[in-house]
Design a protein around this nucleic acid. Sequence first.
DNA 1: ACCGCCGGGTGCC
DNA 2: ACCGCCGGGTGCC
Length: 862
Amino acid sequence: MFSHRWRFGSNRFTEVDLFTDRHETTAETLSQAIRDTAAEEPDADGSVLFGSLQGTVVGLRYYTGVVNRGEMVGLVRQPQNPYDPNAVMVANIYGNQVGHIKRELAAAMASVMDRSLAKVEGVVHSGTKNSFNMPVMLSFWGKEENKTAVIETMARRGYKLNMGGSKPTGTNLKNAFDTLFEGLMESIDGEKEAAKAVGTPLLPHQKQALSWMCARENKSALPPFWEKRGELYYNSLTCFSAKEIPERVRGGILADDMGLGKTLTTIALILTNFHKGKPLPVEECVSVAVHECVCLFFQSECSLSDLCSILIKCLFTCVQEEKSSPMKTKTKAQKASKLQHVLCFLPLSMQDQFEQHVRANVKLNVYLYYGPDRNRSKKFLSSQDVVITTYNVLSADFGNKSPLHGINWLRVVLDEGHVIRNPNAQMSKAVLDLKTQRRWILSGTPIQNSVKDLWMLLAFLRLKPFDVKEWWNRVIQRPVTQGDRAGLQNLQTLVKCITLRRTKSSEVNGRPLVSLPEKTVCVEQVELSQPEREEYELARNEGKNTIGRYVAEGTVLRNYADVLAILMRLRQYCCHPDLLAKTSSDLGSAAATPAELRERMIEKLRLVLASGSDEECSVCLDSVRLPVITRCAHVYCRPCIAQVISNEQVHARCPLCRSEIKTSELVEFPQDEMEEESSTNSEKWRTSSKVQALLGNLLRLRCEDSSIKCLVVSQFTRFLTVLETPLREHGFSFVRLDGNMSQKRRAQVIQEFQSSAADSPAIMLLSLKAGGVGLNLTAASRVFLMDPAWNPATEEQCIDRCHRLGQKKKVVVTKFIVKDSVEESMVKIQRKKQDLVEKAFGPTNTDRKTSRIDDIKALMEL
DNA sequence: ACCGCCGGGTGCC
DNA sequence: ACCGCCGGGTGCC
């Protein structure tokens, strides 16, 4: 543990101690010792109070640490103390030693502490005028099962634990906690113009954020809970006071919503606020490039989800395994290769952002510290203005002569900082160990689940005293988890002081934060041609009969896959007859065993999903994510159904049909492997009414304003393929973005499309669900939704990819709906759902099945 | 520490 | 006196 730091055993220490600045040395060593101890303690969450007793602190006159009335103190075991192996040291918040626990009591406490039966905390209630000894109230905390052992151990040595006024408040503050990050808009202290070197003009809210960030770096306001009392600085939470001004946090958390321009604002900060509030001297950057002028900018490997970051973390292991032994499964190899692209792509995108936002004539040294050939020279890295790296590279270097850890940075920025919330992770340790004057965390979602996650952020910011886990636990985490209102209040105050968070719907002085250009959505009805109509009616009647039978039999949900397949067929007819080539291959339904039937059902469902159709999960009522197919042929999000199974244990049943379900029988459907385009049906291409409707629009648009770019969106990737032919024929330049493209190719396509070059593509064929929320396609201002989705939110999200921050033009959305068809019925259902969402009346569990059946009946006009 | 404890000085009334 | 008592030295663990 920390034993190696204690040299009481050797006389040398005592001798040296007399001549060196004892205050400095011990304080530093002690805080480190406390930090080390705390790091090994389990979390405070499950601890219960065993009782308290009055003890004595002795030897006050030998130490510099002072305590106030009511101040919290820490108790640290000192097994290497030469005078008593049971010694228990008493220290204040800053880690300055106050004294020792009296010998006999220390022996009893040591026996409890060394066996980790309890954690002991102290509060000094007496005044400050104690010169030799003072009383201390000791409370013992630990796991319920250790309670008796602790009480007995103490009793055996003559110490009785008293139960004070126990106060199990138990109030549910979950909701209050959820709103912790709401309304954190500072009373904005004005706007700040960015330095000239910033090429992209800042929006008003970005100037406000810049102003706030500069103030946080330059102003010397006291950190939260500190106040000046006479000559001293006093912490009202811990009652600690110090002569020196507490070290202020130069930095904070910028937690703006995604898309509000956190990166741009941070780049502006880097260029605008160098030393003494002056801009970074970029023109002569080579000569000023000494240690301090460097910024370290982190880019997380994956800003989309934690899952992804975990997967990426595994990447290195995967790659190493590949060398020694052949990959066990295909999926593993696929994962590894895909993730490698992610790794290459995202740090590059950060570099791009610098290039994009910094004026071209400004010479800014930005170095990408990444890849096997990275320059590890400290001298070189120190000479850069900005160094970009990833958490993985940093943690790989950590403890291995890491050059990044040997440099005193001016500023360290953690992008997507919520990724490093587990303080035990190597990545987090590597981050905490960086030396820097200013610290920033950028995050779209500062708290994912719990208070616990916040500690890492405060520790990184070095917000005293909460950067030491014990004080965080005692003052914030335990009170909050135990439902103490004051604790939550304190947490809110704390967060508020260091965080700026705005959402897209935030308002400043009654005006919206970001005003987007107007968006109009119109529906264009498409009439089927005579032959199309005949084909459609044929399929519809057939389907209507089948489904009508299921409805009559009450077996709709049991034949769900069949129903979905029929519906999808009709939807495909509405788009283009060639879409259903595969699904129409009706596997003869005569004489089949139940097992075969089930196989067919699952196959049908697989085809529905493979087409790209936006299906709904009946558990979360949202578009299905990470779809899995049950044995009874129903589709759910994997996490949703996993939740159901874990809730109901062995008796888990399908939420739709109540068949038994088991995790082992779920069929994965990886969305990325959407569809293998087997036959390139280019023999004889034919058109459809919907294709004609789109072409009409595109041609007209090209005449009116050829600079306008379009998104052409469909759920059916095959439809996108069909559309390629006429687009090519009419000489449109287009790109395609769908789910089964590599990350690298994706990035390429997006960049090509977003480019403003004259020869850049005018059209993007986009699969409805391609890309995450972050996908930015603002180059387009015209959207054609070729087919309706079950979930209106999915369509909204898609539209938001171009109707978002950075969009300069008015956005026009056209939805093509085939008249008198299943599509019209879908729109009606969409509207009904939208109403429910707006009224915040989501259907309840029991309603779901019936509403689903009602939907299906409506769709088939039954 | 206005204490306790230690150990040396001292020793009837 | 192998005691009591006095008063100075001293003091965390």
